[in-house]
């Protein structure tokens, strides 16, 4: 068996039956998953890797903090509102800005509306296909 360390500290090896699924679809961004199955078809090692980097953290440096939301929300276009609201809160926290109660209520409503649509999208457009058509990825085998 040959083993290799990934830059983020995981071990990948070629023991047993090695299954690679790349690209993982129905997610935002790009991802690769590797699994090693033993003789009893039990997974003994699994590594999941994000295979895209845009450097939003680097891009945010030195910008006007009022604009941060418009950058962080592009981390993911499926749940856009959540990183946007979170970055607004982070900026307010850093600058010790207190917001009125009504503003907080409006934000909570926005967040809940976001959650609501997100659940529908995730279930019907993204995850539902896994239990419905599991064979669509079943032969993602590599050697």
């Amino acid at each position: 068996m040959t083993a290799r360390r990934t830059p983020n500290g995981f071990e990948v090896d070629d023991s047993g039956r090695r299954v690679v699924v790349d690209p993982i679809t129905r997610i935002e961004s790009h991802r690769r998953v590797e699994v090693n199955l033993d003789a009893d078809n039990v997974s003994r090692n699994a590594v999941s890797t994000g295979t895209m980097w845009r450097g939003l953290e680097v891009i945010l440096k030195g910008r006007d903090p009022r604009d941060a939301w418009a950058f962080t929300q592009r981390i993911c276009g499926v749940c856009t509102g959540t990183p946007a609201l979170t970055s607004v809160r982070a900026v307010e926290h850093a600058l010790a800005i207190e917001i009125p109660e009504n503003a907080n209520t409006i934000r909570n409503i926005m967040q809940l509306a976001q959650d609501f649509q997100d659940h529908l999208i995730h279930f019907y457009h993204l995850h539902a296909l896994d239990p419905c058509v599991p064979w669509s990825i079943e032969d993602g085998v590599d050697a």
Binding site: V21, D22, I24, T25, H125, L126, L129, S136, I137
Partner: peptide, 14 residues
Amino acid sequence: YTDTPMAAAGHRAE
């Protein structure tokens, strides 16, 4: 083919 609402993944997709 689309990475998002597509059932296939991995080799099948490619």
